[in-house]
Amino acid sequence: MKINLTINGKKYSPDVEPRLLLIHYLRDVAGLTGAHIGCETSLCGACTIEVNGKSVKSCSMFAVQADGADVLTIEGLAQDGKLHAMQEAFWNQHGLQCGFCTPGMIMACKAILDHNPNPSDDEIRHGIEGNLCRCTGYQHIVNSVKAAAAAGAGK
């Protein structure tokens, strides 16, 4: 099935099988390996991306459902070689260790600030309920979101 979508500002018009999951399209076909596959069962959030401005788990969506959509992956966050404020904050605050959860975690954290530029600790933890991290114990991730908020990353 022929679909059209925009990923990180670039247009793609692939012919895909309906059963192709969006994460497999991104990683295996479009070559965008930033979003990771952790659980593949919709629980870990490593595959989190934005579709039409909303964070979703791309392992649980078919590519055909994204026909006509505007997709943003972790690769699209940095602009002109400059990291997004959330990426910068994760770097500065040690928001990652092994980094496996990080692409999805940063996308989920960005979504928190898109709706709430100044979240409390509780609101941040509530906002990353769909993302698992086996390394950091989450505290440094919470610190990163607060640092990004302080830097004005929210809309």
């Binding site: 919709s42 959030g45 979703v56 788990k57 989920a108 928190i112 309920e129 769909g130 993302n131």
Partner: peptide, 9 residues
């Protein structure tokens, strides 16, 4: 329900 990504879809 679930988490933000689940609630979005």
């Amino acid at each position: 329900i679930g988490d933000p990504q689940i609630r979005n879809v």
